[in-house]
């Protein structure tokens, strides 16, 4: 397989996406952490992160992508997202506030630090859940038997 790769007609796509995939993943994290101050947030970051994985699958093949990001991880990622979101709410309970009342993370802060930490944690949960869901949907559709084989056209 590795011998074929060097002579593949998709050499340009492979090289460019090798450069771009880490940048796309980094940009997803930027969108996530910048969500406090500008446009962005967990959902968008999750979609961008998933698009990096989907680009990998489109260029290098679904089997390679499933070796890099196994479907079991994807399922864990999805449920971990919901757990982080709900867990943030439970943590605020334990700290003595209402469900998802982020002020109880830093009640003495004068610049609402609790809100910042809380929204970042909640959005991190959204990021995990959305990334997992997007990649899972892609794997589910991509794993179907194609109607038209690549060699047929």
């Amino acid at each position: 397989m590795s011998n074929q790769n060097s002579q593949s007609p998709h050499i340009i796509l492979r090289v460019v996406s090798k450069i771009l995939i880490p940048l796309i993943a980094l940009f997803a994290l930027y969108v996530h952490f910048h969500g406090d101050y500008g446009p962005g947030g967990g959902f968008q970051a999750g979609v961008i992160f998933a698009s990096a994985i989907i680009l990998y699958a489109l260029i290098f093949g679904l089997e390679e992508a499933k070796r890099a990001v196994p479907p079991s991880w994807v399922r864990i990622c999805m449920s971990l997202g919901v757990l982080v979101y709900g867990g943030t709410g439970v943590a605020t309970w334990i700290l003595g506030g209402e469900f998802l009342n982020f002020t109880s993370f830093a009640p003495d802060s004068t610049h609402a630090a609790g809100q910042h930490w809380g929204i970042l944690a909640v959005e991190l949960g959204v990021l995990f859940a959305v990334t997992g869901a997007m990649v899972a949907i892609f794997y589910a559709f991509g794993s179907r038997e194609p109607d038209l084989k690549d060699e047929d056209w």
């Binding site: 007609p9 998709h10 340009i12 796509l13 460019v16 450069i19 771009l20 056209w153």
Partner: peptide, 18 residues
């Protein structure tokens, strides 16, 4: 980086499709 690559990919697909 991306827009010449996208053009290349679209043209390659059209050529491949005959």
């Amino acid at each position: 980086l991306t827009s010449p690559t996208a053009t290349h990919a679209v043209i390659g697909a059209a050529h491949h499709a005959g």
